[in-house]
């Protein structure tokens, strides 16, 4: 196995928290503040890993398994994603299904860990999480089906290799629709505005944050790191399709990829600065819209 294949996992493991830092920095900049350092997420993780833990008396081993499953699922997912033309570490035809479903596994356990505490707030967050993710899943897989049709491949590696500037000039509208759908899924799955507000401090309005209220110490570090990895992986998927830098030279590809990730972080920051969170009742419509965009892209590529 040649070294470039390790690129995606290594990049994700090292730089995933950085992405959060950039997003927050952009938000602060747009809001006219200085904001936390770009490396703040790393300091938070280090601090949490040094702490002890407090567990609720209501909880069982499920509660402790939740954060671990979250991190491991995201780590497995990084092994399925390529960087530009470089094949993924573990890519195979159909790997996109595994990608979608390991995140499903992580969500299942996060939700169960939330229910394990017996807190009504966490139950509420869990209820919202399963509702929105059930609607985001078809949008994600249909969008990838459109890419599969366009590139004639069923592995993420093959799809990313099939997308190029040329593909964008011939099937631009379809790929733009796919990118839009994936952006919506990305925002929803990572609990960002306009679906969920990561900076909120009112339990009644939260989705993801409220599910992890009871985690502390190393467990919470795992939760944060797992969330950062998930942000990275879904972001990398979007960037791989929306930024068609395929030169054949792994360094240039990686640079294009990095620039794309940075741009995505800036876009997320800008969206969060300029939009309000949607009413919870409107979120399903947003996600159904994402699925409709994917379906539209499929109609375009099917002819």
């Amino acid at each position: 196995m040649e070294a470039p294949r390790l690129a995606q996992p290594v990049l994700a493991i090292l730089f995933a928290p950085l992405l959060l830092g950039v997003v927050n920095r952009v938000k602060a900049w747009v809001g006219g503040r200085r904001g936390p350092p770009v490396l703040q997420a790393y300091w938070d993780l280090a601090k949490l890993l040094r702490k002890g833990a407090v567990y609720s008396r209501s909880t069982t081993w499920i509660f402790r398994a939740g954060p671990i499953v979250g991190v491991c699922a995201a780590l497995v997912a990084t092994a399925l994603l390529p960087v530009g033309d470089t094949p993924a570490l573990m890519g195979f035809p159909g790997d996109l299904i595994l990608l979608a479903y390991v995140f499903g596994l992580a969500r299942f356990f996060t939700v169960l860990a939330a229910l394990d505490t017996g807190s009504s707030f966490e139950g509420m967050g869990a209820s919202r999480e399963v509702q929105f993710s059930a609607l985001a899943e078809p949008a994600l897989l249909l969008a990838l089906a459109a890419v599969a049709r366009n590139t004639g491949s069923t592995s993420l590696t093959g799809m990313m290799q099939g997308i190029s500037v040329h593909a964008w000039t011939t099937a631009g509208p379809a790929l733009a629709l796919v990118s839009a759908a994936l952006l919506l899924v990305f925002l929803a799955e990572n609990a960002r505005i306009p679906v969920d507000d990561p900076a909120t401090h009112l339990e009644l309005t939260m989705i993801h944050e409220v599910m992890v209220l009871d985690h502390g110490g190393p467990d919470f570090a795992f939760v944060l790191y797992g969330a950062a990895l998930k942000l990275w992986v879904l972001g990398a998927l979007l960037v791989g399709i929306a930024v068609p830098v395929r030169s054949g030279d792994p360094w240039i590809d990686a640079a294009g990829f990095a620039a794309g990730m940075l741009a995505l972080a800036v876009v997320v920051g800008a969206v969060e600065s300029s939009m309000a969170r949607l009413k919870l009742l409107r979120v399903p419509q947003l996600l159904a819209g994402a699925a409709a965009l994917s379906a539209l892209a499929l109609i375009l590529v099917l002819r």
Binding site: A100, Y101, G104, R107, F108, V111, L112, L115, D116, A126, V130, Q131, S133, A134, L135, A136, E137, P138, L140, L141, L142, A145, A291, A295
Partner: peptide, 20 residues
């Protein structure tokens, strides 16, 4: 693909409810 994805998400919702 669409219906399996929807079924998968809803089944996870349903069984997180049943087990949880």
């Amino acid at each position: 693909i669409g219906s399996l994805a929807l079924i998968g998400g809803l089944a996870a919702a349903c069984f997180s409810k049943a087990y949880g």
